[in-house]
Amino acid sequence: MHTSHLLEIKQLSFGYGCQSTDTLTIQNFSLNVNKGEIVGIVGQSGCGKTTLLNLIAGLILSSEQSILINGRPPKENHQIAYVFQSPALFDWLTVRGNIEYGVRRRKLAPSIIRQEADRLLHATNLWAYADAYPQDLSGGMQQRVALARALIVKPDLLLMDEPFSALDYQTRSEMQELVLELWKDYQPAIMIVSHDIDEMIYLADKIVVLQKTADLSDKCFEIPFQRPRDFEAIMKLPLFNQIKQRIRRSILQ
């Protein structure tokens, strides 16, 4: 099936257990994501943000025609990578071993795997820690390993579920910049869940507000700021605060 979008979600509804409309976590949700596009997902707790990512990743099964990636359902897709809120690294593998883990399953030549891992170790400032183990790393460094592990497979779509929420302000800012730098190099589409509206306006091309109830429509806000963006500069613009307030009001509906 030909599709002009990388990701197409059409009238997706999903609930756990009983399928009554009163218990649906996600109701009649539609979204298109283009190649290389960054999409922020925000909303109140319990509105289905993580569930949406898990459905897209194929970790939860849904109607095969409600989610298509490159024209195929998630379970047939191998060009998706996922960065979780917790780094979820393998304690028994070194930093290099964790980064190479996913791509080794694709049976590429060892020299190519090593070359790609070396590139990411340098790009994430982890070269000096290639032989270290996760327990020897800070939280920010562990999340950099998780990001490198996701990108080494060169995914078309990168899913990120609140990947910076456990980090301090400085480390969080550094991770935001790193994601944008690596995005320029690898050009995946990114869907990122966050509770931080400022962060989403800075990172995303558009922001989707998921709603908890069927009588409210999910809203999509286009972010008009050109790239590259200077966070401190755009935060001072009246338009930044206007967009932020519109998104906040939509979340609180």
Rank of each mutant, 00 (worst) to 15 (best):
I26F: 08
N32W: 05
D215C: 05
P73C: 03
Q79Y: 10
L108A: 00
Q176R: 14
I251W: 06
L121I: 03
V208K: 09
A233K: 15
D22F: 11
L151T: 01
P74K: 10
F14V: 00
L120A: 03
L147N: 05
I223A: 04
Q170C: 01
A233I: 13
H78T: 12
L182C: 08
K10I: 10
V103W: 04
F221P: 01
H5E: 12
L137K: 07
G15C: 03
L158K: 10
A148Q: 11
V33L: 12
I247S: 08
S173D: 09
L68P: 06
E177V: 07
P87M: 08
A189F: 02
K75Y: 09
K154I: 03
D215Q: 14
L55C: 05
E199H: 05
N241M: 11
I56T: 09
A146G: 11
R119Y: 04
S250M: 06
S62A: 13
L159G: 04
L151W: 03
A132C: 14
L93M: 15
L159K: 05
M160H: 07
S30F: 07
E76I: 00
D230H: 11
C18K: 10
D22L: 06
A148P: 13
I38S: 00
R172E: 06
Q19N: 08
K206N: 12
E116V: 00
I9A: 07
Q253L: 15
Q11V: 06
Q79C: 13
K206G: 08
A150T: 02
P224Q: 05
P155N: 08
L203I: 13
L126M: 13
G140R: 05
R246Q: 15
S63Q: 14
P163C: 05
N77A: 05
A123S: 12
D131T: 15
R149G: 04
I247F: 02
E181P: 01
L55G: 01
L178K: 10
A166F: 05
K75G: 00
V209K: 09
L216V: 15
V39W: 02
D230Q: 13
R119N: 10
P155L: 08
I197P: 13
N98P: 09
S66P: 04
E76Q: 14
L151M: 07
I113S: 04
P163G: 05
V145G: 01
H2W: 11
S13T: 09
R227N: 06
Y101V: 03
R96K: 15
I201A: 06
Q135K: 14
K107N: 15
L89C: 12
G48P: 01
D205H: 13
D185N: 06
A148L: 12
K49A: 05
E199K: 12
D161L: 09
L61S: 09
F14R: 00
A130H: 15
T171D: 06
P134Y: 09
L178E: 11
V153W: 02
I192T: 11
V83Y: 03
W127V: 11
G140S: 05
D185A: 10
N77Q: 14
V179K: 01
G58N: 09
I190E: 03
H195I: 13
M235K: 15
P224L: 03
Y186T: 00
W127C: 10
